[in-house]
């Protein structure tokens, strides 16, 4: 039934600012950008997993998290911090499962880095 592919869509207040964040700070590739309709998409670190953005007058920060897997969470955090990403709180450790670091995009949408400790 399903084919490969997953898109997470976000409402954002300023598309240019959002794209700057995702492309410059997170290094994701912009694959679609239409200013006139206020829409854009970026590739993530995972094939066929895409983030979509649509400009809206009213935006509420999403409380669900899009979580990006990394090899080493401390190294990844350091790299992103050098690009100006601010992390919220300390690295959270779920024993025998995962290490998590939380940050937000310009609209306050929750994002996370995750380093799996145990293979699922």
């Amino acid at each position: 039934m399903y084919k490969t592919g997953l898109t997470v869509w976000y409402s954002v207040t300023n598309l240019e600012q959002t794209l700057k964040f995702y492309s410059e700070k997170l290094s994701f590739e912009v694959i679609f950008h239409d200013s006139s309709s206020g829409m854009a998409m970026v590739n993530t670190n995972t094939q066929d997993c895409v983030l979509g953005f649509s400009e809206a007058e009213a935006v509420e920060a999403s409380t669900s998290s899009t979580v990006f897997e990394v090899h080493n969470i401390e190294e990844a955090m350091k790299q992103l911090e050098e690009k100006g990403v601010s992390f919220i709180g300390e690295v959270e450790h779920i024993p025998d499962m995962v290490k998590l670091a939380t940050f937000v995009d310009p609209d306050g949408h929750n994002l996370m880095l995750a380093e799996s400790i145990t293979e699922l």
Partner: peptide
Amino acid sequence: GRFTPLQNK
């Protein structure tokens, strides 16, 4: 409609 496309149009 959405605000941004309307504004641009």
